[in-house]
């Protein structure tokens, strides 16, 4: 292989600027984390709400939840990104559309975070739904028999148990958010993958660039994983399998 190794490249200045390549990657990492955490927060809140809706006795609400899930999980994420960025502003009332296209601050970032948040919310919703449905029916009966309203039964009895049960699949989902955020480069968010492509073209040191980016994505995912593991351990119920005695 005739390749010019240069591991010092990260400290070199970029062509036509006074930043280093490391600065580019750091900026990219910052946007990756920002898009991912914003999307995850959205996905959790919406996912819990939609997953709950799908288990309600009310037919219209359950149907709304089902439609939400199918809408956001049946299209490729990249296509959804383009739809939100190029198509949705055209469908808005004219003034709003113009504002979104011309004046909305951090337009790419917001679009990417919302798109990824909605996409992930459909997956979180399915996990929350399966968690609720895995509980014995008697738990709901016991809650109602004590005089709880349906919202109280969910809030105090069903959801605290269901959410504990789905922490393992939610952990994978949280890691996926970081990986999926790379799609945001396609609409111009200057996140890690965007910066990597830029650095590779600018420096012509493709291998070093992508080794660094690989390590950074891996670190993001592993930190997400460890964070969720701490939450899982803290929320264990004494006396149950895997709990402390």
């Amino acid at each position: 292989m005739n390749y010019n190794w240069n591991w010092g490249i990260f400290l070199d200045q970029v062509k036509g600027g006074d930043e280093t390549y490391l600065d580019w990657l750091a900026t990219g990492l910052g946007w990756t984390v920002a898009v991912s955490l914003t999307a995850w927060l959205m996905a959790l809140l919406l996912g819990i709400a939609i997953g709950t809706l799908r288990t309600l006795p009310s037919r219209p609400l359950a149907t709304f939840g089902a439609a939400w899930v199918e809408l956001f999980r049946n299209l490729p994420l990249l296509v959804q990104m383009f739809l939100w960025f190029f198509v949705v502003p055209e469908l808005l009332p004219k003034d709003w559309g113009l504002w979104v296209k011309r004046d909305m601050p951090a337009k790419e970032f917001i679009t990417a975070a919302v798109c990824l948040g909605l996409f992930t919310s459909s997956r979180v919703a399915e996990q929350v739904r399966s968690g609720i449905q895995s509980l014995p029916r008697g738990q709901m009966h016991a809650a109602l028999a004590m005089g709880f309203t349906l919202p109280q039964a969910y809030r105090h009895v069903l959801l605290p148990q269901a959410l504990r049960r789905v922490i393992p699949p939610l952990t994978s989902e949280f890691m996926n958010v970081f990986k999926n955020s790379s799609v945001a480069f396609a609409i111009g968010v200057m996140e890690l993958t965007f910066q990597a492509r830029q650095m590779q073209e600018d420096s012509e040191q493709g291998i070093e660039t992508y080794v660094a980016v690989t390590i950074l994505y891996f670190l993001c995912a592993i930190i997400a994983n460890r964070g969720m593991a701490v939450i899982e351990a803290r929320s264990r119920i004494p006396g149950l399998i895997g709990g402390s005695h």
Binding site: G138, A142, A145, V157
Partner: peptide, 17 residues
């Protein structure tokens, strides 16, 4: 009404958490 009528179940149904 339910708040005034107590019920005990076959599988106890205590809240495990």
């Amino acid at each position: 009404l339910r708040a005034r009528v107590g019920m005990v179940f076959q599988h106890f149904e205590l809240f495990p958490h």
